[in-house]
């Protein structure tokens, strides 16, 4: 039973508006980047099949759909996440400073069973901007913060150039797998009325 749920990994991406959450997702899943910024419209979640150590998983990556702009993500968004990705813009100090409140918000809302060991991954994005000259948050500073929060894995990325995105998401997937499933409340008999939601279809559900 447990293996059924573990096929599907829910990943949520948090961080201030405009740090590149959607771009990172798009670069990873679709290998595409658009310079045109629009506050996220149209993306619910993206999925990608990943193979980790000969096992296949479906990574379901949830975007904030703009609801992060005024800190208005509902508790339902956070539920059942297997890994939480915190993103900031290395050129915007404020977005780095806000990582702590995003992390706390996640822990309060998702209330994972083992908050100390819940997998986070931090991404410092937009390192390509201005050849790195407009950078205001140093790698050292970011790594120090990650270390202080229980050694959160840290990646510097450029969604625009696709730099380090693949590696970051592989780490995200590996960490999500390690996240022990919470109580088996999802199983075995939750009814997914849409037929293909966050849960793998159980056998014989097609009716």
């Amino acid at each position: 039973m447990a293996s059924r749920r573990r096929m599907l990994l829910k990943v949520i991406i948090l961080g201030d508006s405009g740090v590149g959450k959607t771009s990172l997702m798009n670069q990873y899943v679709n290998k595409k980047f658009s310079n045109q910024y629009k506050a996220t419209i149209g993306a619910d979640f993206l999925t990608k099949e990943v193979q980790i150590d000969d096992r296949l998983f479906t990574l379901q990556i949830w975007d904030t759909a703009g609801q992060e702009r005024f800190q208005s993500l509902g508790v339902a968004f956070y539920r059942g996440a297997d890994c939480c990705v915190l993103v900031y813009d290395v050129n915007v100090t404020k977005s780095f400073e806000r990582l702590n409140s995003w992390r706390e918000e996640f822990l309060i809302q998702a209330s994972p069973s083992d908050p100390e060991n819940f997998p986070f991954v931090v991404l410092g994005n937009k390192i390509d901007v201005d050849g790195g000259n407009s950078r205001t948050v140093s790698e050292k500073k970011a790594k120090a913060w990650c270390a202080s929060k229980g050694n959160i894995p840290y990646f510097e990325t450029s969604a625009k150039e696709g730099f380090n995105v693949e590696a970051a998401f592989e780490c995200i997937a590996r960490n999500a797998i390690k996240n022990e499933p919470e109580e088996e409340i999802y199983l075995p008999d939750t009814i997914d009325v849409g037929g293909a939601g966050r849960q793998q279809r159980s056998s014989g559900c097609e009716c």
Binding site: G42, A65, Q67, R69, F70, A76, F77, V193
Partner: peptide, 30 residues
């Protein structure tokens, strides 16, 4: 009959999320 996991409060959230995905702007505590 079916009942939503975590309670009925999940239903408005589901529709709000759909609205947000379609471009609606959300401001709680306002």
């Amino acid at each position: 009959f079916i009942y939503p996991m975590y309670g009925h409060g999940e239903l408005p959230q589901a529709f709000c999320r759909c609205a947000a995905v379609k471009g609606a702007l959300y401001v709680l505590r306002m």
